[in-house]
C-alpha cells in the first residue's frame, strides 16, 4: 500500500505519538497501583504532572525550530496535539492542587494565589493556557482569522516562562532541575529572537516576499 507523506503522518506517526504522550499518565497509574509513589503520593503526583506540563510545553515550542532547522514541515501537524497534551497534564496538576491539596477551599486558594508568588505565576500561566486550548480547533482558527489567532497564541511564550519560574520559585535549595528547563527554554526562545533579528536585517522587498517559516540557516 502506498501512502503519501500526509497520510503517513496522519495515520501512523500522529497516533503513535498520541499514545506515547499517554505513557507518563500510564506510568503514574501503574506506580499508584503498585505503591511506588512513596510516602507522600499526592506530592509526587503533583510534581510529576507539573514536570510533564513543562516538558510538553517545551516540546511544543521546539516544533517550529526543529521544522525550520531540519526542513520537516510535517512536524507542524503534531504541534496542536502536543500543546493540548501540555494543557492536559496542566489540568491534572491544577485539579489535584485545587481539590486535594486545597480541598476546594476557595478562601484558602485565593489567599495562596495572592500571597505566594510561585503559586501566583503558576496559576496565571494555567489560566492563560485555557484560551489557547479553547481556540485550538480549526473552526476557531478560522473564526479568529490567522493573524489574530497567531497573536493570541504568542502568549505561549509567556506561559512557558511562567511555568519555569513557577518551578524555580518553588525549589528550596537545589536549583539544578528547574535550571535545566530554563536553559532549554532560553535556547528555544533565543532561536526565535535570532530569526526575527535576521529578518529585520533583510531589505524590505525581500522581507515581504518570504514567509518566516521558509527561512533556514545557510549550509
Amino acid at each position: 500500500m502506498h501512502m503519501t507523506q500526509t497520510e503517513w503522518v496522519q495515520r501512523v506517526i500522529k497516533p503513535t505519538i498520541f499514545l506515547m504522550c499517554l505513557i507518563p499518565l500510564a506510568l503514574l497509574a501503574w506506580d499508584a497501583l503498585n505503591n511506588h509513589l512513596g510516602a507522600n503520593p499526592i506530592e509526587k503526583v503533583i510534581r510529576r504532572t507539573g514536570d510533564w506540563t513543562l516538558r510538553f510545553l517545551l516540546i511544543t515550542l521546539a516544533i517550529t525550530p526543529a521544522r525550520r532547522l531540519f526542513g520537516w514541515n510535517w512536524l507542524m501537524r503534531l504541534r496542536r496535539m502536543l500543546g493540548l497534551f501540555a494543557f492536559f497534564y496542566a489540568c491534572l496538576h491544577f485539579i489535584i492542587y485545587i481539590g486535594i491539596d486545597q480541598s476546594f477551599d476557595v478562601n484558602e486558594i485565593i489567599k495562596d494565589v495572592i500571597k505566594h508568588k510561585y503559586v501566583t505565576v503558576g496559576f496565571a500561566s494555567f489560566l492563560l493556557l485555557i484560551p489557547l486550548a479553547a481556540t485550538s480547533t480549526n473552526a476557531m482558527m478560522k473564526r479568529l482569522g490567522g493573524r489574530r489567532w497567531q497573536q493570541l497564541h504568542k502568549s505561549v511564550y509567556a506561559i512557558a516562562i511562567g511555568g519555569v519560574i513557577h518551578y524555580l520559585w518553588l525549589v528550596k535549595a537545589d536549583l539544578r532541575e528547574p535550571l535545566i528547563y530554563a536553559a532549554i527554554l532560553t535556547v528555544l526562545l533565543g532561536y526565535r529572537l535570532w530569526v526575527k533579528q535576521r529578518q529585520a536585517l533583510l531589505p524590505d522587498t525581500v522581507r515581504s516576499s518570504i514567509h518566516p517559516s521558509s527561512i533556514r540557516p545557510a549550509k
Binding site: L25, A26, L28, A29, W30, A32, L33, N34, N35, H36, L37, P41, I42, V45
Partner: peptide
C-alpha cells in the same frame, strides 16, 4: 489514587498489590 487514576488503566491488568 488507585480508584481514580489507576482504575481505568490498570484494573484490568493487575489486582491491587500492597507492597
Amino acid at each position: 489514587i488507585r480508584n481514580t487514576v489507576g482504575a481505568t488503566v490498570a484494573a484490568a491488568l493487575m489486582p491491587p498489590l500492597l507492597a
